[in-house]
Design a binder for these strands. Structure first.
Length: 752
RNA sequence: UGGGGUGUCGCCAAGUGGUAAGGCAGCAGGUUUUGGUCCUGCCAUUCGGGGGUUCGAGUCCCUCCACCCCAUCCA
């Protein structure tokens, strides 16, 4: 397990393991085989498989195939491929919810026998009406009154296929008025006459997600069932089913985390499907698609996607991760791994006038000085070469480091050249450069003494191979694309005749390369042939020059909207008469307004306060304890383990100066746990306040002696450190130091 | 609107009453035969807003605001 800060799911797992709730952690990745997995699934895979791996547990791969209308074996293959490609191994065989249909059916029968499920026979529309809305309760269908026997018989006949689709459904009998819509007698089974891709026509009924999922988890011995946020409402049902069936423990629990969203990307199955169907992309594995197959074909490595998933973390806030983070991960992964070669994307011919004789073969390493890998190739150099069109400028902008009529440049691994003449066509476009090279400037043995601003890449004309380049860019032009209108029209540029050095084709040292100064490229696994090589651009290199150029131009930066003024929030809804009466009473008692309001508005709080007040302690202290501490406990569902008298006693302890406010919180905490009297807790734990400066002084001196840097920083004016020192004193005294005295002393001693 | 969630830097994200982690992006310098990499430095007096409790609050209390999810016989 790495040192990385643990996410909240791992904390839960760790705690459960520690408490002995489970002997071993079992998770599952449960996709429905109705579409191609995308990078959002990669995150889920990384969570499900990663957590199991980190805690020595197992992760199952389960096809959640309860809807015969949308599922297909080709998707199960795609899912298996994706998991395997990412480097994970599922425990045991691939599992299928459809394997549990019989067990699930038996559970349903059990529910019916318990009177907790019934066959409903109303039509869909009526059912919707009866369900009510989020604000209005629903009403139970008249069929809910059916006897257990009738339900059993009907359900059996449903299974046998004696009814048409929609004629009957099986529903749980829970609560039609539940504020959670998922609990309003949810469907458990529906009739479907479509053959299932695995069970064929064996079943005429199919379980719904909520019924099948929790039980499948249970059947498999899953301990932690991780899913995305939109299932939070379903958790209550998940628990209800397992609890109602009284399954033998241990049983699984569901936890939710936020799904992945990426900027400049769509993730929904529907929108992805639309891209494919409308031919916006070439298929599910189009390198611009956020599918695993797409990234894979683009040339992304599994490692890069996994580190990405680790980097973005696991939390519960809906968020959109910047696609730049993913791009960083692939660059970072490839940089130390892949060979550098030269490829000219937009060739511009250069004739080196003073170069005589045949082609010369130079030695060129495949890896730069900072990559500790061995390997090199022979690189032809001759009179005729090509450079990239963008590496020559007749009228260069300021800061341009490449070839110009007055600026020489180094040809990487070769010689320095100088421009002698620019040849143009009738349209005025540069078509060729006549140059001159310096024979004594050969790379590695340069004695010319010429200083150049940069080195550019090039290829020798007669040995270069023509290749096809597919330059991919973001599929969408807006950060949060909505529709197909947001497509980036330049997401793919095909360059038919780029020129590449021969070793890449002849030697094939790798399948991924860095084309120097151009980007990372991948030999397309589908279309590449020796006769017609095709490379996909995985990602560009970072380009600080281009960035600088762009900033020169007046970029119409989208103005950030000015912070919307928030209502002051100091106006509360009006109090009713009872509240008002209490409020006035409390104010008369001398309580400050804010506290009086809080107390007055909450009846439970108010009655607790009044009882405590009668039992003792100063009104003010009691009121503060009740508003700030008791309020928290009252919010919890569990009954209070302490009464008003104890709060009164706590207040007295505080009033008399026997304990500090900090200690009071600790005592209160102990009271909520044990329900003991505050005095008992104070005595048992020895929590009486230390107010004697002479007891505190040596402690503070020690702290000061132990933290010379912080003392220095404090003296330099870092006032925040003051809190640090007081904190140390409080910690060393287990919170018993009188903070006011500690403060005074710290200030005093720090000055010395 | 009833219920369930979430708000910490431009984007992610730690943080559980005691000096606001880290990554990406950005900025500035250095190294460099890739305008890449690498290195160094900078980048939240403040945690959605307002109050309160406390010696001390991103963390506790009250309250307001914003956003997401739930009314498929989908998962």
């Amino acid at each position: 397990m790495s040192e990385r800060k643990k996410d909240f799911l791992r904390k839960i797992v760790e705690e459960d393991l520690q408490k002995g709730k489970y002997k071993e952690v079992v998770t599952r990745f449960p996709p429905e085989p109705n579409g191609y997995p995308h990078i959002g699934h990669a995150k889920a895979i990384s969570v499900d498989f990663g957590i199991a791996r980190d805690y020595g547990g197992r992760c199952h791969l389960r096809m959640d195939d309860t809807n015969p209308e949308t599922e297909d074996p080709k998707y199960v293959e795609a899912i298996k491929d994706a998991v395997t490609w990412l480097g994970f191994k599922w425990d045991g065989p691939v599992r299928y919810t459809s394997d549990y249909f019989q067990q699930l059916y038996d559970y349903a029968v059990e529910l019916i026998k318990m009177g907790k499920a019934y066959v409903d026979s109303i039509d869909e529309e009526t059912m919707r009406e009866l369900r009510g809305t989020v604000t209005e309760p629903g009403r139970r269908s008249e069929f809910a009154k059916r006897s257990v026997e009738e339900n059993l018989e009907l359900f059996e006949r449903m299974r046998k296929g004696e009814f048409a689709e929609g004629e009957h459904v099986l529903r749980a009998k829970i609560d039609m008025a539940s504020p959670n819509m998922k609990m309003r007698d949810p469907l458990l089974y529906r009739i479907r006459r479509t053959p299932h891709y695995r069970t064929g026509t064996e079943w005429a009924i199919y379980p719904m997600y909520d019924f099948a999922h929790c039980l499948s988890d249970y059947i498999e011995g899953v301990t932690h069932s991780f899913c995305t946020l939109e299932f939070e409402n379903n958790r209550e049902l998940y628990d209800w089913i397992l609890e109602t069936l009284k399954v033998k423990p241990p049983r699984p629990y569901q936890y939710e985390f936020a799904r992945l969203n990426l900027s400049y990307t769509v993730m929904s199955k529907r929108k992805l499907l639309e891209l494919v169907q409308k031919g916006v992309v070439s298929g599910w594995d189009d390198p611009r698609m956020p599918t695993i197959a797409g990234y894979r074909r683009r040339g992304y490595t599994p490692e890069s996607i996994l580190t990405f998933c680790e980097q973005i973390g696991i939390a519960k806030a809906n968020s959109v991760v910047d696609v730049a983070q993913l791009e960083f991960c692939i660059r970072d992964d490839l940089n130390p791994k892949v060979p550098r070669v030269m490829c000219v994307v937009e060739p511009l011919k250069v004739t080196i006038e003073n170069y005589e004789g045949d082609v010369e073969w130079l030695d060129a390493p495949y890896y730069p000085h900072d990559v500790p890998k061995e390997g090199s190739r022979k690189l032809p150099f001759g009179k005729y070469i090509y450079i990239n069109r963008k590496d020559f400028e007749e009228n260069p902008p300021k800061g341009y480091h490449r070839l110009t009529p007055d600026q020489p440049v180094r040809l990487r691994y070769a010689y320095i050249i100088r421009c002698k003449e620019v040849i143009k066509n009738d349209k005025g476009e540069v078509v060729e450069i006549i140059a001159e090279y310096y024979p004594n400037s050969k790379s590695g043995q340069d004695t010319s003494g010429i200083k150049v601003k940069s080195a550019i890449h090039w290829v020798e004309a007669n040995h270069a191979k023509s290749v096809e380049l597919r330059l991919y860019d973001r599929l969408y032009r807006v950060e949060q694309p909505e529709s197909i209108d947001d497509i980036n029209p330049d997401s793919l540029k095909v360059v038919k005749n780029a020129l590449i050095e021969p070793a890449v084709i002849n030697e094939k040292p790798d399948e991924r390369y860095q084309f120097e100064r151009e980007g990372y490229f991948y030999a397309d696994p589908v279309d590449y042939t020796d006769e017609a090589p095709v490379f996909n651009r995985i990602v560009t290199l970072k380009d600080s020059w281009a960035k600088k150029q762009q900033k020169q131009k007046p970029s119409p930066k989208p103005q950030k909207e000015p912070a919307k003024p928030q209502p002051k929030g100091d106006e509360l809804p009006p109090m009713d008469t009872a509240q008002k009466e209490r409020f006035e009473g409390y104010k008369a008692l001398g309580l400050r307004e804010e506290i009086a309001v809080t107390l007055a508005r909450d009846e439970a709080l108010a009655s607790f306060f009044e009882k405590a007040r009668e039992a003792g302690g100063s009104v003010e202290t009691v009121a503060k304890l009740v508003t700030n501490e008791v309020a928290r406990e009252l919010k919890k569902e569990a009954a209070l383990s302490f009464g008003p008298e104890q709060i009164a006693k706590l207040a007295e302890l505080l009033d008399s100066g026997a304990i500090s406010t900090r200690t009071a919180k600790e005592v209160f905490e102990a009271m909520t746990q044990s329900g003991e009297d505050p005095e008992t807790i104070v005595e048992q734990k020895g929590l009486r306040q230390i107010s004697d400066p002479e007891t505190l002084r040596p402690i503070i001196e020690e702290i000061i002696a132990q933290n010379p840097q912080n003392v220095a920083k404090y003296k330099e004016g870092n006032e925040k450190l003051f809190g640090f020192f007081v904190g140390q004193v409080m910690q060393k005294t287990q919170g018993k130091a009188d903070p006011k005295i500690a403060n005074r002393l710290v200030k005093e001693l720090l000055k010395a």
